[in-house]
Amino acid sequence: MGNRHISRDVKIAAINLYDQGHLTLKQILDCVGFSQRTFYRVLKLWRTTGDVIRAKRRCTGRYRLLHYDDVDYLIRLVQHQPDWFLDELLGLLKHNRFISVHYTTIHRELERAGMSTKNLTVIAIERNEPSISHGLYP
């Protein structure tokens, strides 16, 4: 029949009817409208966990390689020296924090932290404004 949502109440009702022996399994499955395999899967879940719905995982996906302190360190480095390249940040992270990641990971984490190339350009321009006003550039 395919994947479809079966409400929690229907699953519990089917298990209660089965456990109390009011109806046969075939009659129960005809009433609730799901397969015998689904019924036994729900029954097993009920008996092992006490619920008919699997608990959702709190966190999905891969674990982050850089923790909050590492990203904070990178942000401070970029604010101090905004014209560093990602490979230079990679080297500093490897030597000072003992963390080896790919430079795209550093780029992604800086983007997640709100740093963009536009922000870095603004920081670099702000750092160079006094030298422009002193006539150091032709």
Rank of each mutant, 00 (worst) to 15 (best):
L29F: 08
V101C: 00
S35E: 08
P138W: 03
V78F: 10
S133F: 13
D51W: 03
R112A: 02
S116I: 05
C31N: 13
H134R: 08
R54F: 00
T104P: 04
N96Y: 12
G2P: 06
F85M: 13
E88K: 15
V52S: 06
T117W: 15
L93P: 11
F39R: 07
H134F: 07
T24G: 11
I53A: 04
A14S: 10
P138V: 05
R97F: 05
Y103P: 03
D70R: 09
Q81M: 01
Q27R: 14
D19F: 09
D87A: 09
R97C: 02
L92A: 09
N128I: 08
T117P: 11
H5E: 01
W84T: 14
R8I: 06
L74V: 08
R64H: 04
L45H: 07
Y137K: 12
R57L: 00
L17H: 09
H22S: 14
Y137A: 12
Y18I: 00
L25A: 06
I28R: 14
A55P: 10
S7F: 09
F98I: 08
W84K: 14
T49V: 09
W84S: 13
G114A: 08
V78G: 00
L43P: 05
S100G: 04
F39E: 01
L74T: 03
I28N: 01
D87S: 13
V122I: 11
C31H: 15
R62W: 10
T48Q: 13
L43W: 08
H80S: 15
H5M: 12
L120M: 15
P130K: 02
G114W: 01
L66P: 02
D72R: 13
D87V: 12
I6Y: 01
K94W: 15
S7V: 09
P82Q: 10
G21Y: 07
R62Q: 02
G135C: 11
N128R: 15
T104L: 01
H107F: 12
S100L: 02
Q36V: 05
R4D: 08
R58G: 12
F39L: 05
